[in-house]
Design a protein around this nucleic acid. Structure first.
Length: 279
DNA sequence: ACGCCCGCCTGTAAGC
DNA sequence: TGCTTACAGGCGGGCG
């Protein structure tokens, strides 16, 4: 389940490989991957001949800015991968749904077994604002404008449990199940606390932990777990799972207080936390 | 406003 | 061994 750090690592790879390149041909054999385009040839037609002039990330979405004002938007969902190949002749991985071939011969391939991910083409705003399809997204956790004070104010004006709130893309964009647990552990705060119950110091700790956790994860290439096989554009696994403090570590000792890490099921998803030093 | 459930999917692994 | 079941969970929609 790629979250902000994994998506950012893929973005950096895309920036090195597709920026400035012109799209030659596009095939979209997986209709579910381009479900916003009932006509798959229309999807291909809006890409063919275009040059990629920018690669951005918004939350867990990737945006390829095109030279005609169009934007190719990608969401990896749970199992989506964007993979680069230099030679078009390389064999296709199972579940390859979209293939974008550049005029220089390289290929960008979208592989997605569970098909929760998608690609679509939309139009960018001249002001550089988000396309309308992404208008629901909340603030960017790592943007300088998302200051500790701003975050504190955002928390105070809501009354929701912290874990679901951190994962709410309309509140803050890019955090999923893994990083919400890691962020809360880093702040020493329980995920079932309500957002308006935090002291000013706790809100500061939560903001600090959010920024540090996400930045560290990007530095280590994101998290690759056994069951999900996240890899970057070039097939490389991330290394941040080695630094997970609680996620996937039920029964192990908390690195901070040595008490046991527990796993709970919360609205049908696993939550990991320290039973003692998160309060 | 919030919290929970469902449906959408497939691969993996545990249980009988 | 081979089948069934649970689990992984992002996201949008619905409902209490």
């Amino acid at each position: 389940m790629p979250e902000l750090p994994e998506v950012e690592v893929v973005r950096r790879g895309l920036e090195t490989m597709v920026l400035g390149r012109r799209i030659d041909t596009v095939t979209a054999d997986g209709p579910r991957s381009v479900r916003r385009h009932p006509d798959r040839t229309e999807f291909a037609g809006r890409l063919e001949g275009r040059t990629v002039t920018g690669v951005r990330r918004r939350g867990k979405y990737l945006l390829g800015i095109l030279d005609d004002g169009g934007v190719l938007v990608a969401h990896l969902g749970m199992s989506g991968q964007l993979r680069w190949t230099d030679t078009a002749g390389e064999s296709m991985a199972k579940h390859t749904h979209v293939v974008i071939t550049f005029t220089t011969g390289g290929q960008l391939r979208f592989v997605d077994p569970r098909t929760f991910g998608e690609l679509f083409v939309t139009t960018s705003d001249p002001d550089g604002d988000d396309p309308p399809e992404l208008a629901h997204l909340g603030v960017e956790p790592l943007e300088a404008t998302t200051t500790g004070a701003r975050f504190d104010a955002m928390l105070t004006e809501r009354r929701a449990k912290l874990k679901p709130l951190l994962m709410d893309q309309r509140f803050i964009a890019g955090i999923g199940n893994i990083y919400s647990d890691e962020i809360l552990w880093g702040a020493g705060i329980r995920g079932d606390r309500t957002s308006d119950s935090l002291s000013a110091d706790e809100a500061r700790q939560l903001h600090r932990s959010m920024v540090e956790t996400l930045q560290d994860a990007v530095c280590h290439g994101g998290s690759s777990l056994a069951d999900e096989q996240y890899v970057d554009l070039f097939g490389r696994s991330g290394g941040y799972q080695r630094f997970h403090k609680v996620y996937g570590r039920a029964g192990e000792a908390c690195p901070r207080c040595a008490n046991v890490v527990v796993r709970e099921r919360w609205s049908n998803r696993s939550t990991f936390s320290c039973s003692t030093c998160q309060t």
